[in-house]
């Protein structure tokens, strides 16, 4: 018989378990429950996938910008898509969806990461900060102000990622010189070419004693 995967971290039943239970309850298919696992697997794929799909979700508890969310997500959904499509926090941008541009940069438990390469389900219990959570009330974060002052953007699409990365660049201690900033901001591509202005903005915030995060 099919081996049930171990799942000691979460109390919810595994995907296959839940889905199979659902399928077992579908009367016409009861007999299949007795079939060898390989056959059952093959048979499963011909079943009503639309209904079965309902069970292919996991509970996800995350805190985004200080607000707790309980969501139900497919394991294949990335943090970026959950932020943008489920929570409608579209400040985090999709520039490549392959971890090659930095536009989706967010902070997870205070560290800058790429949300397009992060499976949402793996963020359970974590604290996420996006560009929408950077300012305090009406008060812009010093990095946001510096980007405006130094004109650190044109089209604005890479900007949220640049700013999230810039804040982390300083808190990590990698904003000592302009060249250090350039190296440690190289994961954020800007096609309009605002790099020199971005470096000026970060350098100014760093010199003023860093930034609040």
């Amino acid at each position: 018989m099919c081996q049930q995967p171990t799942n000691d971290a979460e109390k919810q039943p595994s995907l296959h378990h839940a889905r199979r239970n659902f399928l077992k309850q579908t009367s016409a298919l009861t007999a299949l429950a007795l079939a060898p696992s390989v056959v059952m697997k093959a048979a499963e794929k011909k079943l009503d996938e639309k209904a079965a799909g309902f069970f292919e979700q996991k509970t996800l508890n995350i805190e985004v910008n200080g607000k707790a969310h309980q969501l139900s997500v497919e394991p294949r959904a990335t943090l970026l898509d959950v932020l943008r499509e489920n929570l409608h926090l579209t400040g985090s941008k999709k520039g490549c969806d392959l971890g090659q541009c930095g536009a989706c940069t967010v902070h997870v438990d205070g560290k800058r990461v790429l949300s397009c390469l992060s499976l949402a389900v793996m963020q359970n219990g974590k604290k996420i900060t996006t560009i929408e959570g950077l300012q305090q009330g009406d008060q812009l974060h010093p990095m946001q102000e510096a980007f405006i002052k130094h004109d650190g953007f044109q089209c604005g699409y890479c900007t949220p990622g640049q700013i999230m990365s810039a804040v982390a660049c300083i808190s990590e201690g990698h904003a000592g010189t302009d060249n250090e900033i350039r190296e440690y901001m190289s994961g954020n591509i800007c096609r309009c070419g605002a790099y020199p202005n971005i470096v000026d903005a970060i350098s100014e915030v760093a010199k003023k004693g860093g930034s609040r995060d």
Partner: peptide
Amino acid sequence: PVINFDYVKPTTEQN
């Protein structure tokens, strides 16, 4: 691409 999959998060090496 982007086939859905099961996901588990064990806490011990054995599991």
